[in-house]
Nucleic acid binder design. Structure first.
Length: 271
DNA sequence: ATGGGCACCTGGCTGC
DNA sequence: TGCAGCCAGGTGCCCA
């Protein structure tokens, strides 16, 4: 489900409820996430105050006084802020109960999400330490992408989805960014001229920022911390629009498979 | 180093 | 109505 805009929207949504609150209790109903949640997680975090809520790539980092929770939403996860007494739904796997009486509830039907605890710098956690630059940061720019794309034979879309190249760009925003840059997703990364890659870095930033502003994209199950969907779906140019007319040139949008994922593009606008 | 394919899991939809 | 098959916002790991 969630790519960078959805994770960032979630971060912004949970921040006010978490910041400076103390954790009264953690309830892990289902520890079998992508990695098994450590058995003593509740004991380790109980009583600690929340110092910050950050995002790195698609990971949420909840910094406490003596460590950090590292949370990933996987494909189908969401976090909601609810009254502690709110009725449970299926797949409500974890509750973080705060001293305000509110509760941060993690729901994840497919259990591709994860919850780790670290008592050292979370950015040096094995899952995070080798991640590429943030797409919205200044070090993700034309020079960088040109350098990385050099001599690479992979299709540009797959390059964009590689977290060693840039983080946070998933299946939706890879297709959307390539549309806005007018680049065909199947083009070999190393054969795209510098000027086009420069347009692409800009397109990625614009698309991600627009999506954050719209509260993310809801296709099926994504909801923000208040339980409401994102509105960026209405602004998608190609994703899940196979056969529908291109919003620019009216040519039917094409759907292909790349690396076992669906890719969408306009055969006229993207070359 | 690079690239490709699989695995993990549940649920919703399609078509027989 | 039932059920098999396919698809879905991710990504770590294993293999060539």
């Amino acid at each position: 489900m969630p790519e960078l805009p959805e994770v960032e929207t979630t971060r912004q949504g949970i921040y006010p409820a978490l910041i400076d609150r103390r954790i009264d209790k953690v309830i892990v109903r289902e520890p079998r996430l992508r990695w098994r949640v450590i058995p003593d997680l509740a004991a380790r975090v109980q009583g600690q105050r929340v110092l910050d809520v950050r995002r790195r790539a698609k990971y949420l980092l909840i910094d406490l006084e003596r460590g950090s929770l590292i949370l990933h939403l996987g494909m189908s996860g969401n976090l909601r802020v609810l009254p502690q007494t709110a009725p449970l739904l299926t797949h409500d796997h974890v509750d973080v109960i705060l001293d305000s009486g509110q509760c941060l509830r993690f729901n994840d039907p497919r259990r591709f999400g994860s919850l780790h605890w670290t008592e050292t710098d979370p950015l040096e956690h094995p899952l995070l330490e080798n991640l590429a630059p943030e797409p919205l940061g200044d070090d993700f720019n034309a020079d960088y992408l040109v350098d990385v794309a050099q001599r690479r034979h992979v299709a540009i879309k797959q390059l964009l989805m590689n977290s060693q190249v840039v983080v946070g760009v998933g299946n939706i925003y890879a297709s959307e960014s390539l549309f806005r840059a007018g680049i065909r997703p199947t083009r070999a990364a190393g054969k795209i001229p510098r000027a086009r890659l420069a347009q692409l870095t800009d397109a990625i930033k614009v698309v991600l920022n627009d999506a954050i502003r719209a509260g993310g994209t809801t296709l099926r199950d994504y909801v923000n911390a208040s339980g409401t969907p994102g509105y960026f779906r209405q602004k998608l140019f190609v994703y899940e629009r196979a056969g529908e007319p291109c919003r620019i040139c009216r040519a039917p949008i094409k759907q292909i498979a790349q690396g076992q994922r669906s890719t969408y593009y306009c055969p006229k606008c993207q070359t």
